[in-house]
Amino acid sequence: MADLLFYLFAAITLISALAMVLLPNAVNGAMCMIVSFLGTAALFVLLDAYFLAILQVLVYAGAVMVLFLFIIMLLNVDEEAPRAKPAKLSIFAALSGFTILSVLVVSLFNNPSALPEPPVIEVAENPLGPSAANGIPFTTSAKSFGYSLFTKYMLPFQVTGFLLLAAMVGVIVVSKRMTETTVKTEQSD
């Protein structure tokens, strides 16, 4: 059952992602992107990572894509000019990329022992004690996310927050150029 669901959701995710790139209409593309995000969230649920799945829906499908649709509709870009034919160079690039990918995949499936063994990542200690029940050294509950974020990964967490803040300030500076008129209207407000 879980296998079947995995193939179903993986197929939905991949097909809608492909459709998003290929469809000429921007709104269709945005809708396919939403479906693709939802498919990814379903895959997270199959991994028992409910928290990640919900964040995926909440942030990407719920908030970011609403903004995308908003912009697409506001600019009314659905009547797009037909696409120009892809240049020869890009066809060549796509073909060579695909060849390298297929060589890699084939060699991987023929000789899996050649792969380096990935080291087990030591996550922060589980606040609820080691969970022998599910056989993994960490839980998927929301609490353990917060616990490791504020202990072991404190520095990356704060650096990320600082980067986001810088990006936010940058957006405000770029989008809100102070001209004569805006300064005047703001003073009169």
């Binding site: 409910y50 928290f51 964040l55 909440l58 499908a61 609403v66 908003f70 929301a142």
Partner: peptide, 20 residues
Amino acid sequence: LDVGFLFILAISSLGVYGIV
């Protein structure tokens, strides 16, 4: 769910697509 409230937030935020 142990993240029940977030689930409600996430799903109900999809409702706006109906209107849009």
